[in-house]
Amino acid sequence: MITAGSAFAGVAMLINMAPGPDSLLVVRTSATRGRGSGLAAALGVLTGCVGWGLATAVGLTALLTASRLVYDTLRMCGAAYLVLLGAAALRHARKPPTPEPPASGASERTTTAPPGRRAAFRTGVATNLLNPKAGVFYMSLIPQFVPPDAPAFGATLLFTAIDTAELALWYWLLTRAASALSERVRRPVFRRRLEQLTGVAFLGFAADLLTDRSP
């Protein structure tokens, strides 16, 4: 099991570090709303991953490949949600910059207020759970590393924990790096470019889901 877990950890890390809507959401939230909100979005994504892992352990994710209707329904919902995120980012890019308050401490408290973190958490959960590729990832990858003599349920939970821990570390690094851009984001030109870039990227991920024909 140790050998299988190590092999899975290596493969999962490479996949987790690949650009995707979850990572983009964490980066954008951290850069525009502060690291606290970025970490909340990351926690939402991780919660979704745990949900996919539990569903895989009990066999629910098999519906994604067994039923084309289920997969396509989730795919369309996920694409629609990414379109909303992309449209929101592009709309924010067109807004005139808001004047900075005189006290920087007050600004920081405003951008990292608990209600904003709750919204970031919910967005993270929705972005992950509405992406059928996340479910297919768990269903198709994890069984390949489960040893024949190991209990499938326990091994699936173990590999889910490994993947979640790796993602937590990766998102911790992303939020730290992205939040360093907060000072530049206050510049109107930089903010517009960042919102435009992330908006187009979200729309690109939506198009990828709409044209996807797997599994």
Score class of each variant (00 low, 15 high):
A177K: 03
V50D: 01
A66L: 12
I15Q: 11
L210V: 11
T56Y: 02
G124R: 06
P151M: 06
T47Y: 00
T198C: 14
R68P: 10
V70P: 06
F190Y: 13
G116D: 05
P102R: 14
A12G: 04
L197H: 06
T156F: 05
R122V: 14
R193P: 10
T110F: 15
D149M: 11
T32P: 04
P147H: 05
A79C: 04
A9G: 03
A177Q: 03
P215D: 12
D72L: 08
L82W: 05
V45H: 01
A152S: 07
L24F: 04
A120L: 03
G10N: 06
G51M: 05
C77P: 07
V189Q: 08
A7L: 12
L167I: 09
R118V: 15
P188C: 08
G59C: 03
F8M: 04
E108S: 13
G5Q: 09
H92G: 15
A155D: 03
N16E: 07
A155I: 00
H92M: 13
G48H: 01
V146A: 07
L141P: 08
L46Q: 14
G124L: 07
S23Y: 00
G5A: 11
S30L: 04
L85C: 08
M17K: 05
L169W: 13
G38N: 07
L43K: 04
